[in-house]
């Protein structure tokens, strides 16, 4: 009788990385549906094309690194990156834009650092920022949402992506952009003058944010991540907005609700800030990490050069994560104080 000789523990829980990733993918569905509804099939084409590229680049990198394809592909992490970048990019982006973005995300940000778990920066956000800096025109051209303009069909979406023919749909500035450019109208008047604004924020954007919030809450319920980072992120963003709301004057930064439901706020709070690999690890660390990311988002949105800021804020906080970890170790059982940091002399 050959007895298996292993050390404890012998039992294992049901959790698996693959299941975690699949649940994250599933949780993006409401948000993606909302985006498709308001911005058309360009969103879906983005995601599908990005997913194909992600699998291709991931396979290529694994092959170059001499890793077993099946074992690593099944963790679904490349698909998560693809969906996150596909959602973040403007719909109807050309195929090469997405390809450059995915190559940066998978090859540069992920595999050059050693693959899943070893990347210091969120791959999707690296891809996004590379594109935003390199191709600012394409990256800031958003289709007008349904209700403001006409939304093209699936064929148009495919054509826009894969043929060089220029796309002649209606484009419109995003609500965050409009608010940023405003320097003369009271918010009330701006709301009336611009067709992009809806009930609380931009038309379409507000519902997409609510849908991502729903997906995020489901992930919280599934205990895929803890509430600390997203709540701190949203709370600080709302707090900053409240502090600088200014009663709705022409210099106002926008209401807390406007910021919470605009741009990539909810998407960032539940799908980017919660990325475990690149964020801080302890409970206190995640509170600090989320709060500072929220602060940065507001600072860049209102006083920076870019209308939205989740990608930059998250990348900057990725830099800071090890530093935060360094100072936020929890108090271990039986110790009076959190582990004392050694003085580096």
């Amino acid at each position: 009788m050959a007895l298996l000789r292993v050390t404890s523990p012998h039992a294992h829980g049901p959790a698996s990385t693959q299941k975690v990733m699949q649940q994250v993918l599933l949780a993006t569905v409401p948000g993606v549906i909302a985006l498709i509804h308001f911005f058309g099939f360009g969103v879906l084409v983005n995601i599908a094309w990005a997913a194909l590229l992600a699998l291709a680049f991931e396979s290529l990198a694994l092959k170059l690194r001499g890793r077993e394809l099946g074992f690593y592909l099944k963790d679904c992490s490349a698909l998560v990156t693809a969906v996150l970048l596909g959602v973040a990019l403007p719909p109807y982006s050309p195929w090469w834009l997405i390809a450059v973005g995915m190559a940066s995300a998978i090859l540069l940000a992920k595999h050059l650092y050693g693959g899943l778990g070893y990347n210091p920066f969120n791959p999707a956000m690296v891809g996004y920022v590379v594109l935003l800096i390199s191709f600012p025109v394409q990256m800031t051209t958003w289709e007008a949402p349904r209700g403001v303009g006409e939304v093209p069909g699936l064929l148009d979406a495919l054509r826009a992506c894969f043929t060089p023919a220029s796309f002649d749909g209606t484009t419109a500035a995003t609500p965050l952009d409009v608010l940023k450019q405003n320097n003369s109208l009271l918010l009330e008047n701006l709301w009336a003058a611009e067709p992009v604004f809806g009930r609380w924020a931009g038309i379409g954007w507000e519902w997409a944010n609510i849908a991502f919030l729903a997906g995020g809450l489901w992930l919280l319920y599934r205990r895929i991540f803890t509430w600390h980072a997203p709540l701190a992120f949203l709370a600080v963003l709302a707090l900053m907005a409240a502090l600088f709301y200014d009663g709705g004057s022409s210099a106002s930064g926008g209401s807390p609700l406007f910021h919470l439901l605009s741009g990539a706020t909810m998407f960032g709070a539940f799908f980017i800030v919660t990325d475990p690999v690149t964020s801080a690890v302890s409970v206190r660390g995640r509170l600090v990490y989320g709060a500072l990311a929220g602060l940065l988002v507001y600072l860049i949105r209102v006083w920076g050069n870019y209308p939205d800021a989740v990608a930059f804020a998250v990348l900057i906080m990725n830099f800071a994560a090890p530093f935060i970890d360094h100072y936020t170790q929890p108090r271990t059982y039986g110790h009076r104080k959190p582990a004392k940091r050694r003085e580096e002399s």
Binding site: V6, A15, T17, S77, L116, G117, I224, T226, V281, R331
Partner: peptide, 24 residues
């Protein structure tokens, strides 16, 4: 069952949530 091959740590923090000694 015999333990499956280990995958990369994604620092999800489930271990820290489970640790009775409040370690990381």
């Amino acid at each position: 069952p015999a333990p499956p091959p280990a995958q990369a740590c994604i620092r999800c923090g489930l271990c820290a949530e489970a640790c009775p000694a409040s370690l990381l």
